[in-house]
Simulated assay, not measured.
Amino acid sequence: MATETSEHHKYYVPEPSPWPFMLTVSLFFMLGSGAFWLNGSTTVAPYFAALGLAMTLVMVFIWFRDVVNENLGGVYGHQEDMTYRWAMGWFIFSEVMFFGAFFGALFYTRMIALPWLNGEGEKFFTNLYLWPEFEGAWPSNGPGNVGGDFETVNAWHLPLLNTVLLLTSSVTVTWAHWGLKEDSRWKLCTGLAATVLLGAVFLYYQGLEYVEAYQHLGLTLGSGIYGSTFFLLTGFHGMHVTLGTLMLFIILLRCLKGHFSSHDHFGFEAVAWYWHFVDVVWLGLFIFVYIL
């Protein structure tokens, strides 16, 4: 018995697993096919991209199933818990840097590149000889009207509605967290279900926004620098909302099965951290992409 107790105080190291490597292969397969698809290869690339997505979901499910079983088996202690907390913290930090790069590109385009192309400062001859009729106003479709005419998305329509949805979802996931700490399964599951629903509705309205942009506003990925930055920022954020909604749904299923307790629930906390991060990023998008 003493031997068993001492074993539990050791840092748990799992057996070698093939899932990280398989997940890397499936991600490469999905993203590579998606890149070909975006560049005009529409024969087999969409099917390969869908296959890569399916492989990725299967690998993630199997890998995280093993982690959940390890946790339920009682092999994790304080050190493992701190490892997961540090790992999630650094992961969110990497996401901050990820979106920071895109916001930086937006800032550079609007505050530095456009004035230069417009002939301000020492770049007067750039405008005079290369693009004499270019006006560096935002939003821009580039010199020579390369992106064609387009209209911007009305910030006070679907984007405002989506802002309200995400802010409300932050409240509901926090309410669910309070329920978990109080050992109230009803509050926990109700709050999580509401958060998942709000995330799904957000994605639905973002899809409608994209349809409106392409079909009625002439705003596409090819609409100059504004179109590319708009879809880059909002598209990557939508991908994160999709991932966050899926993770919340899985956590909801685990809560319905009785997983987690008031003193052991980092799996829930990690997803809640991620969701709050996604909400904060959206506020930045709403201000700097839609309003300003």
Rank of each mutant, 00 (worst) to 15 (best):
G148V: 03
G148Y: 05
D149T: 11
F150V: 06
F150H: 01
E151C: 08
E151S: 12
T152M: 10
N154T: 11
W156S: 09
L160I: 08
L161W: 07
L161P: 01
N162R: 13
V164K: 08
V164L: 15
V164F: 04
L167Y: 08
T168I: 06
V171E: 11
V173A: 02
V173P: 00
T174Y: 15
W175L: 00
A176I: 01
W178D: 06
W178M: 11
E182D: 11
D183N: 11
S184M: 11
K187D: 05
K187E: 01
K187A: 04
L188R: 00
C189V: 14
T190M: 15
G191A: 13
A194I: 14
A194W: 01
T195D: 02
V196I: 12
L197R: 04
L197F: 05
G199D: 07
Y205E: 08
Q206E: 11
Q206A: 04
G207F: 12
E212S: 12
E212W: 10
A213W: 01
A213K: 00
Y214R: 06
Y214P: 03
L219P: 02
L221Q: 14
G222R: 02
G224M: 02
I225L: 08
I225P: 00
G227A: 15
T229G: 09
T229A: 13
T229F: 09
F231K: 11
T234V: 13
T234Y: 12
T234P: 09
G235Y: 15
G235K: 07
